[in-house]
């Protein structure tokens, strides 16, 4: 924290984004973002992905449209976001107020051996999001900015995108349940009530 140029630590970022999470709904992209969200505490309102690479933001869109009164936060990796970067165009057009996408940008495909992603060569995801019409779109480099991002996500006053520059560190895996039916059912039961267990 003393060095203002030091890269952020991903679990500090995620812990701050999920501070006092109340009834925030969280989608976590596959790999390290899933483990980070799980390290902050397993929760029925988390939908952590174990696959479906490229799908996190669009799951967030469908959920945000279905639940306009709830706030939806997608936490994913730069590799995952880049796999379906066209989603930002779709989301920019739909522009749900209650959707925030936070990309944890370590400039690497961490899970598969820390190979460089296009952001390592300067590809500007926040710029892409801006160009897609997501007006609140920024690069985040400090914990103060992370705290602002947390508030934006919790307030839900407009679609928000952030490319959070983080340290390419490999941390211990903290895993949520892996079974898709468990994750789906407990999420739906938490959000929709016991009725969700019936058709």
């Amino acid at each position: 924290m003393s060095n203002p140029n030091a890269l952020l630590h991903r679990r500090d970022v995620v812990n701050e984004l999920l501070r006092d999470r109340a009834d925030l709904l969280v989608i976590a992209g596959l790999g390290a973002p899933n483990w980070d969200v799980s390290a902050a505490g397993d929760h029925p309102n988390n939908f952590p992905l174990w696959g479906a690479m490229g799908g996190a933001s669009m799951i967030g869109l469908g959920l945000a449209l279905a639940q306009p009164k709830r706030k939806v936060l997608v936490i994913t990796g730069d590799g995952e976001m880049l796999m379906n970067v066209g989603s930002l165009a779709t989301i920019g057009v739909e522009a749900p107020k209650n959707l925030t996408i936070a990309v944890l940008d370590n400039e690497r495909f961490g899970e598969t051996g820390m190979q460089k992603t296009p952001t390592a060569s300067g590809v500007d995801l926040a710029g892409i999001a801006t160009a897609c019409g997501i007006r609140t779109s920024r690069i985040v480099r400090t914990m103060t900015e992370v705290a602002e991002l947390r508030d934006l996500a919790h307030e839900g006053r407009g679609t928000t995108f952030a490319q959070v520059k983080i340290n390419p560190e490999a941390l211990v895996f903290v895993m949520p349940p892996a079974d898709g039916v468990i994750l789906t059912t407990r999420f739906r039961q938490s959000v929709l009530g016991d009725e969700a267990l019936f058709n």
Partner: peptide, 16 residues
């Protein structure tokens, strides 16, 4: 089209 598969999974999570 794959965006739609993901989007409708999100819709289902939210009850639509």
């Amino acid at each position: 089209e794959e965006e739609g598969v993901a989007m409708l999974a999100g819709a289902w999570l939210g009850g639509e």
